[in-house]
Amino acid sequence: AEKTGIVNVSSSLNVREGASTSSKVIGSLSGNTKVTIVGEEGAFYKIEYKGSHSYVAKEYIKDIKDE
């Protein structure tokens, strides 16, 4: 089941290729951006990003809701 969340950062949140802080950064999301969460892996959520799937750190996503 998909969930949505809100990016909870003051500046921007790195979007990564994989579920690791050493993964390549492929983009960023600004605070209060709504994201669609399709899964989770460790400390990361797998999200829909620009037509494919990428990862963001869970600690920076708030207001998780089931869609």
Rank of each mutant, 00 (worst) to 15 (best):
S54P: 04
I61T: 01
T4H: 11
E67P: 12
G18H: 13
G42I: 02
A57E: 15
N14Y: 09
V35L: 05
F44R: 00
A43S: 10
G18P: 01
D66C: 14
I37N: 00
S30D: 11
V7Y: 02
V38G: 01
K62S: 14
G5A: 05
S23T: 06
S12I: 12
A19L: 04
N8I: 13
R16K: 06
G39Y: 03
K46Q: 08
V9L: 08
I61K: 00
H53C: 08
T21E: 14
V7N: 02
G27E: 01
Y45R: 01
R16F: 15
K58V: 04
L29T: 02
H53A: 06
D66H: 12
K50N: 14
E48T: 08
V25D: 02
S11R: 12
K34Y: 09
T4G: 05
T4Y: 13
H53I: 14
K62Q: 11
Y49P: 00
D63L: 15
G51V: 03
L29P: 01
V7K: 03
I6A: 04
K58C: 03
K24W: 04
Y49M: 03
A43K: 09
I64W: 08
N32L: 09
E41S: 09
K3G: 06
D63S: 10
S20T: 10
T36A: 07
I6D: 02
N32W: 12
E59Q: 10
V35C: 04
K46P: 01
Y45H: 03
I61Y: 02
A57C: 14
V56Y: 00
N32R: 08
E2A: 15
G51H: 05
D63N: 09
S54K: 11
S54Y: 15
G51F: 05
S52C: 09
K34R: 13
Y45I: 04
I47V: 05
Y55E: 00
I61W: 03
L13T: 08
T4N: 07
Y60F: 14
H53M: 09
D66Y: 14
S11F: 08
Y55L: 01
S20V: 04
E41G: 03
A57R: 10
V15D: 01
L13G: 05
V7S: 04
E40N: 04
N8D: 10
Y45W: 12
Y55R: 00
Y49E: 01
Y45P: 02
S28G: 06
E40D: 06
S11E: 12
N8G: 08
G31C: 13
V7R: 02
S30R: 14
K62M: 12
I61V: 08
K46G: 02
N14H: 12
S28Y: 13
T4W: 12
A43L: 12
S11Y: 08
Y60C: 15
E59S: 08
V56D: 00
T36K: 13
G31V: 11
D63M: 15
E17W: 05
T36F: 12
Y45F: 09
G51K: 05
S12P: 09
Y49T: 01
G5F: 06
N14R: 11
F44P: 00
A1Q: 12
V35A: 01
K34T: 09
S20R: 06
V35G: 00
S11T: 14
V15C: 06
F44G: 00
I37T: 00
S52D: 08
V56R: 00
S28A: 11
S54D: 02
D63H: 10
A19K: 03
E48N: 09
I61R: 00
E40C: 09
V56K: 00
G51M: 05
N8S: 13
K50E: 12
I61F: 05
Y55T: 00
V15S: 01
S11K: 12
A1S: 13
V38S: 04
E17T: 07
I47P: 01
K24A: 10
S28L: 12
A19T: 06
N8C: 15
G51R: 04
A57M: 11
I37K: 00
L29M: 05
E41K: 07
E41I: 09
T33Q: 09
Y45N: 01
K34G: 04
S11N: 12
S23K: 03
S10P: 11
G27D: 03
V35H: 00
G27A: 05
G39F: 03
K3M: 11
S52P: 02
G27V: 02
E48H: 08
G31S: 14
K58A: 05
Y60L: 07
S54W: 09
N32F: 10
A1P: 13
E59Y: 07
S11M: 10
S11D: 14
T4L: 09
S28D: 06
K3H: 08
K58N: 02
V25P: 03
G51C: 07
Y45L: 07
E67A: 14
I61E: 01
K65P: 09
R16E: 01
S20Y: 07
V15H: 02
G42M: 04
S20D: 08
K24R: 13
G5Q: 03
E67D: 12
S20I: 04
E59A: 11
I26T: 05
A19G: 05
Y60D: 08
E2H: 15
D66R: 08
E67M: 13
V9N: 07
S30Y: 10
D66T: 13
D63Y: 11
H53S: 05
S22E: 12
I47E: 01
T21N: 14
D63F: 15
V25Y: 04
I47Y: 00
A19Y: 04
A1W: 15
T4C: 13
A19P: 15
K3F: 10
A19H: 04
I61D: 00
A43R: 08
V38F: 06
V56F: 00
N32E: 08
K62H: 10
T21F: 15
N8Y: 09
V56C: 03
S30F: 10
G27C: 05
I47C: 03
A19M: 04
S12T: 12
G27L: 02
E41R: 06
A57I: 08
D66W: 15
K3A: 06
I6G: 03
S12V: 12
K3E: 04
E40W: 06
K34L: 13
T33A: 10
S30A: 14
A1N: 13
V35N: 00
I47A: 00
V56N: 00
G42C: 05
K3D: 03
E17Y: 06
I37G: 00
S52V: 11
V35D: 00
E40S: 07
N32T: 06
N14E: 15
K46N: 03
V25Q: 04
N14Q: 14
V7H: 02
D66G: 11
S23G: 05
A57T: 06
S52F: 10
S28F: 13
T36E: 04
N8E: 08
N8P: 04
V7D: 02
I64S: 07
K65S: 13
I26P: 01
I37F: 00
Y55S: 00
T21S: 13
V7A: 05
R16P: 01
S12Y: 11
S23M: 04
S22G: 10
L13W: 02
S52N: 11
G27N: 02
K46F: 05
G51D: 07
H53N: 06
I47L: 02
G42L: 05
I37R: 00
T33P: 02
V38P: 00
T21A: 13
E41Y: 09
